[in-house]
Structure formats: C-alpha cells, structure tokens
Design a protein around this nucleic acid. Structure first.
Lengths: 162, 162
DNA sequence: GTGCGGTAGTTGACGCTTCAACTATGCACC
DNA sequence: GGTGCATAGTTGAAGCGTCAACTACCGCAC
C-alpha cells in the first residue's frame, strides 16, 4: 500500500470551488427549468433529439450523448412519451434497436424551453465569467471529458486486462 | 417578450463541454466511491463533519456547506446514523437545533474513504489538466459559486420584491 | 406574557434513479 | 446451422431526493 498523495492547499481550494460552484449551478439551472415543468435531464434528452438528424436517435446513442444509463433513458423516454413529446419506433436496421423520435408537439416544447434555458445558462454561468474565463473553463472540461472517453475503467470495457 | 440571445458557437461548445465533462466526472467519482460503499453525497457530508471543529456541525450549517436541502441532509444523516458513523445530539444553545457529530467509527470510515477519493479526484480531474488549466477551472468555479451566493432569486430570500 | 412571524428540523408520500434480472436479437466461429 | 457470447432495451423493486405539511422553538413587539 502506497502513501496517499493528498491535495496541495491550492488544489484543495480549486477542487472545493468546483464542487460547490458545480452544485450551485446545477441547482439553479434545475430550478429555473422546473418552473417550466421539466427537469434538466428531461431537457437534455429533448434537446439532443431536436438537434439530431430527422429528430430521431437510437436509445443507446441518446444514452451515451447525455451520459446516462440505458435504463434511465428508457424510464425518461416513457415519461416523455406519456406527455406526447416523444415516440418510440423499432429500428429498421437492427431488430433489437429502438429509435426515439421527437414529435411536433415535442419540438414545440423544446423550442419554448430552450429560450428559458439559455437565459438561465447565461445568467448563472456565462454572464458571471469573463469571456476568457469561460473559454478556459470550457477547455479544461474538454480535457476532462476526453480523459473519461479514453479511461480504460469506463463501463464500456467489459473486462480490465483483455 | 424580448428575443433570445442564443449562445455563440464557441459558447455553445464550451457549455457542452462543461455539461458532458461534468457529468462524466460525477459518474466516475461516484462509481469509485460506491465501490467503497458510499455515495459522493454521503462522503461530502462525512468529510465536512470530519473537518469541523469538534467533528460536529449543526444540521443547517452542514446543509449549506454541501448545498443540499435540510430535508435531504436529515435523510442522509439518518442513514449514516444507522451505520453508526454519525450521532444526533440536541444543540445546547438553541432548542430547535440539532448537532450532528462524527463518531470514532465514522472518522475511521472517512479516513479510509478519503484516500480512495483523493486518488479518484486526481485520476479523473487533477491529473488530466495542466496546473494552469486546473487553476483556471478553479477560479472560474469560484466566480460561479460567488454569483450564486449573491443571486437575489436564491431560496434564501423569502420574498422577491421586499 | 401573549401573539406573531420566522427559523430548525423531521416526516411521509411521491417521483426519479439505480440495480439486477430478464427477453430478444445480432454476430462470429466451428 | 447451431452454439455461445455480446449488445439493445425493458422491467420492477428498492433506494434516494424532493416537496409540502407539520412540530417545536426563537425572538421581537406590544
């Protein structure tokens, strides 16, 4: 057992800032969206669909895009289907697959929600940073995102040493 | 109704990077901790307690520190109490108050968890950034955090126009 | 010292997320 | 062409988080 490399005091400070800022941003965005009757994760799903070609995506592609389990996407899609915003159709090229499609009603909803959401993102994130800070934040998070993708312990890999 | 100021393409890109990177980091940290039998939010509560003077904190102080509702903290504390890691005692100076205290067993748990958690934070965040990037991330998130604190629509303010 | 509004914390019900088990299909190899 | 293993998606139960209602207490005003 090797000794732990603890965080230096600056590292600690930034890590804490990340934890708190992130949590607060999440709370604020979710609160703003919930006034419109959807959660942030509902919105993420809908907005990915709205941008997809033909406003349709495979369930698993959707799951990966929004970084959620397939099970969660199934449940969320079921809820959104009950609201008439989304429709499930079998995938033509793969008998196991399901394609989720945004209905016209769903598209209307996304468009309405998007305006509120963008304002919220601006208010709680973009506008509180200098353009330079925002860019630095974005680039750092790109590095985090890409590291995850190439992480061998990510669920995608079924067994470690193969 | 005013027209929406949409995100410019760079802004969009960084915002998306933030969303995904953040989600993936969350998933990774939570997965690593869950192997030790606790969730990230359990850990945050425990670690705040472990650093507090006398390893004790008022419920509401704890709630604010980890940016969670008092109700959630009550539930989490109840679960941790069942595991023998924390103890609830009445606050001496305020008949309404409850002080949550980390037990010796709880302290042992935090110390064990901390090593694993720090390694996880390093692996998924600190080590994938240059020191300069990490600092920029931390400073940006400090700005986000501080903006939230001074936001008049934050739950702290009981009524809007007063 | 009574009334009143505000704060601290809890509770239980409901809704969302997770997890493990399951069905069904695809794909490779013999 | 059948066996075996992987992938796609669903299901239901259990756990966690949220919300509104509730108790109990504080502190001030009168």
């Amino acid at each position: 057992m090797e000794t732990t490399r603890w965080l230096a005091s600056d590292e600690q400070r930034w890590w804490r800032a990340y934890l708190r800022g992130n949590r607060e941003l999440d709370v604020a965005l979710d609160r703003d969206l919930s006034r419109e009757g959807v959660s942030l994760s509902d919105y993420e799903l809908l907005s990915m669909l709205s941008e997809a070609e033909g406003r349709r995506l495979r369930m698993s592609a959707l799951a990966e895009l929004i970084v959620q389990s397939r099970s969660r996407v199934t449940h969320t899609a079921a809820r959104l289907e009950r609201r008439g915003w989304v429709r499930r159709t079998p995938a033509l090229d793969d008998g196991r697959g399901v394609v989720l499609e945004l209905t016209d009603e769903g598209l209307g909803a996304v468009e309405r929600l998007a305006a509120a959401h963008v304002a919220s993102v601006r208010r709680h994130l973009v506008d509180v940073l200098t353009p330079y800070q925002f860019r630095a934040l974005g680039e750092a998070m790109e590095a985090v995102r890409d590291a995850y993708a190439s992480d061998p312990t990510t669920p995608a890999s079924p067994c470690e040493p193969c």
